[in-house]
Each structure stands twice: as structure tokens, then as C-alpha cells.
């Protein structure tokens, strides 16, 4: 889009436009492939937000592609035909050099088409990415649900079941958050995710240990059970905080941070 703005400002009218058939055809083919993958993604997704938002982005890309094809066909028919007249030439006094100049005709169609494709693709990827983030968050929330029952586990049998339930879920969160942080370009967000994940990995076995101690204490008469429960609850709370922070950071975009500027 920046390139288009430069073009917008630099373009001189009156020149013949080259035949853009090949690059426009390449764009059309790429659009067709992306639309196909996009539709497959919509059809196979169980995320209602994605199913609602993604078609709009696809239509935008498709519409922009048609705009490009139209402009290209017209240019091919008559390369000099574009009525690319600038407002500057018509209305603006010569001393006013910085002025937003609308471009008309085929060149405008080309530029609008290319801009529409970039913006539509960007919206499409954002929509898709947000859906991927929601998937990870769903797993994180499962972990939170398990952590919430830690304090009602009072037998070894229940603890074994607790570990059986929690372990695969934690492994999944760990794998997905780790792969997510590797994709991020925002260093601060990456660092927070890495730190929180390390904390979760460290705390998990200590929590299980504290739960086991609590169970052993109450099995032996209950002396010190209160302290053991406090310790267990503290650890479950710490893990809950770390997972909650992971969920918060996963939802941040680069635009949430001033430093991105």
C-alpha cells in the first residue's frame, strides 16, 4: 500500500500504460487459489466467528481481482485511453505542491484493485489468525477448569485421575503456545509467553506434589492439613495466573503497544 501511495504521487498522466496482462493474470491465479483454500477453511472450521467473518474478506479479494482484470482489459484495448487527470492540474494553484491527488480511470482501478487485494488478504489472514488464537485459548481454558478442581481432590485415586486429565491438556497448551511464540514478531509478547510457559512447566509438578502431600496428611489424621491446603491452593493460583496471562498476551496485537511505532 505504501508503494501505491508513492505511485499515486509520482504518476504522470499521458504515458501509455504497458500491457499488464501477465502480472494481472498471475494475481488472478493466486487469488483463485487463495479463495479455494479460504473456502475449504470456512467449510471445515467449527469456529462460528471465522465462518461469519472470513467470507467478507474473500469477497473483498475477489472483487478487487475483478477490478484489476477490468482495468487490464481496458488498457489492453487502448493504452492511451485512461482519463488520468489530476485534480492538481485542474484546480490547485502551482504553489501548492502537497495535495492529495485522486487519480481517475484505469490507473485508479489498477491501484484500487491492488490495494483491495492487499487489504483483503490482510483481513483474511487476520481473521484466520484470530481463529487460531481462539483455538489455543480454548485449550488454556481447559487447563484453568482442571486447576479449579485441584482443591477438591482428597484421595490418591482422584489425584491419579486429575493428573491423567491435566497432563495431555498441559502438553497441548505447552506445544501450541511455544509454536505461537515462535511465530510472533513482537519481542515483548514472545518474552512474556516464554516466561509464563516456563513458570507453568515448573509449577505443574510442584502442584501435583503439594496435592499428594495434602492427601497423605488427611489420610494420616489431618495434622497440618490447613497449611498443606494453603500451599496447594497457592500453587494452583500461581498456575492459574500464569495461564490467564498467557490468554491475555495471546490476544494482544502489535497495535496494542506504543513501541510498535
Amino acid at each position: 500500500v505504501d508503494r501505491l501511495v508513492i505511485l499515486h504521487e509520482e504518476a504522470e498522466d499521458g504515458n501509455a500504460m504497458p500491457d499488464l496482462s501477465r502480472p494481472v493474470q498471475a494475481v488472478s491465479n493466486a487469488v483463485a487459489n487463495l479463495i479455494k483454500v479460504g473456502r475449504d477453511t470456512i467449510n471445515s472450521s467449527d469456529d462460528p466467528i471465522l465462518r461469519q467473518d472470513m467470507p467478507g474478506s474473500l469477497h473483498r479479494v475477489e472483487g478487487a481481482s475483478r477490478l484489476l482484470e477490468d482495468a487490464c482489459a481496458m488498457l489492453k484495448a487502448d493504452p492511451y485511453s485512461q482519463p488520468a487527470r489530476y485534480v492538481r492540474d485542474l484546480f490547485v494553484p502551482h504553489h501548492q505542491t502537497s495535495f492529495s491527488l485522486p487519480i481517475f480511470g484505469n490507473r485508479k482501478k489498477l491501484i484500487d484493485g491492488a490495494r483491495g487485494i492487499l487489504q483483503g488478504t490482510s483481513a483474511l489472514l487476520l481473521c484466520f489468525d484470530e481463529s487460531e488464537v481462539r483455538k489455543i485459548i480454548r485449550e488454556c481454558k481447559k487447563v484453568l477448569d482442571y486447576l479449579a478442581v485441584a482443591e477438591v481432590i482428597e484421595t490418591m485415586e482422584d489425584l491419579v485421575q486429575f493428573v491423567k486429565d491435566l497432563s495431555p491438556c498441559l502438553t497441548k497448551v505447552s506445544r501450541e503456545v511455544d509454536s505461537r511464540q515462535k511465530e510472533l514478531t513482537h519481542q515483548v509478547h514472545r518474552d512474556i509467553l516464554i516466561r509464563c510457559l516456563d513458570q507453568v512447566k515448573t509449577l505443574a509438578p510442584i502442584l501435583i506434589c503439594s496435592m499428594k502431600i495434602f492427601i497423605q496428611i488427611i489420610a494420616q489424621g489431618g495434622k497440618g492439613a490447613e497449611e498443606a491446603a494453603e500451599n496447594r491452593n497457592y500453587l494452583a493460583g500461581r498456575m492459574t495466573d500464569e495461564i490467564t496471562e498467557i490468554i491475555r498476551v495471546l490476544q494482544l496485537t502489535t497495535y496494542d503497544e506504543d513501541e510498535w511505532e
Binding site: 508503494r3 501505491l4 508513492i6 505511485l7 509520482e10 504518476a11 504522470e12 504515458n15 501509455a16 500504460m17 504497458p18 499488464l20 502480472p23 494481472v24 498471475a26 494475481v27 491465479n29 493466486a30 487469488v31 487459489n33 487463495l34 483454500v37 479460504g38 475449504d40 477453511t41 479479494v61 484489476l68 490507473r107 489498477l110 491501484i111 491492488a114 487485494i117 492487499l118 488478504t121 483474511l124 489472514l125 484466520f128 487460531e132
Partner: peptide, 29 residues
């Protein structure tokens, strides 16, 4: 397939960049 979506988007972005370059090439002359 998440990888395929990103791959196709990247191909499209490259094709669009080349188109812009082609239009811009005209503007430079």
C-alpha cells in the same frame, strides 16, 4: 490447513507486489 492458507496468501502478496512494480515501472518512465 493453516500452512496452506499462509502459503497461498504469500504467493498472492508477491504477485501483487510484482504487479505494483509493473505499474510503477510505467510511472518511472
Amino acid at each position: 490447513d493453516s500452512g496452506e492458507m499462509v502459503r497461498q496468501a504469500r504467493i498472492l502478496a508477491q504477485a501483487t507486489a510484482q504487479l505494483i512494480q509493473a505499474i510503477k515501472g510505467e510511472a518511472d518512465t
